[in-house]
Design a protein around this nucleic acid. Sequence first.
DNA 1: CAAATTGTGTATGTTGTGTATGCACAATAT
DNA 2: ATATTGTGCATACACAACATACACAATTTG
Lengths: 121, 121
Amino acid sequence: MNISISSTSEKPIYQQLFEQISAQILKGELESGYCLPPIRQAALELRVSVITVKKAWEELERSGLINTVTGKGCFVAEFSPDEMLRIRNEMILNQMESDASYYKSFGLTLDEVIELLKEIY
Amino acid sequence: MNISISSTSEKPIYQQLFEQISAQILKGELESGYCLPPIRQAALELRVSVITVKKAWEELERSGLINTVTGKGCFVAEFSPDEMLRIRNEMILNQMESDASYYKSFGLTLDEVIELLKEIY
DNA sequence: CAAATTGTGTATGTTGTGTATGCACAATAT
DNA sequence: ATATTGTGCATACACAACATACACAATTTG
């Protein structure tokens, strides 16, 4: 459980959890079959409610990243490296398109965006 | 009033309005002193409530982009090209940093991000 | 010029949606 | 049986969006 949540963030807590766990799975840091911590324990560690953790885990389940088994726990799903890459790219591109349209609305060119990115990345 | 709002967007309507008007001002499409449409008329055109428009206009006021005069209207503020650029970059960089941290969480390098951006921009 | 009218932004109260919570329940493992 | 796991339900709170009524400024008009 290497997670950091920010109460000041504009993003909901459950979404922060979802994004960070997703990234860890898709980076290969959490292997297939790995058992996530019980929601109570996670909630205790992260100082949030059980419900909030559950909601994040539900999102992971819906995205096909984990399998939930009542009474046992939540396990990182099995998928091929190809599929893993596909999901990863899908999530990233989905977000990136939204980001790009924001930049475009300010009249930024691709080169300008790249220039700014180089400064802050 | 060249605005398009999406009810299906995850972003609040007032924020969509704020972002689009901001961009138009900072692109120079709306000149200093230009009088924004009355909130009633804007609300009617956009098929939203007066309150929603007012909230967006309030954000613009707070950002220093417009001046509101009760009984007269809301006018695009006067600022130097330098200041205009400063505000623009501030808004964009602010968003971009958040975007970048998302990409980083997936382990993307700067080059990978640039590569993907080139594909979709 | 003063009163009425029109046009502008403003404030109040209500409804609906979504985040986050605690506590009680169901299913599973040992 | 008992402990451990996930699940369901009722609630509190915050916020977006709404309709309506209000207050102020400019204009018309007698």
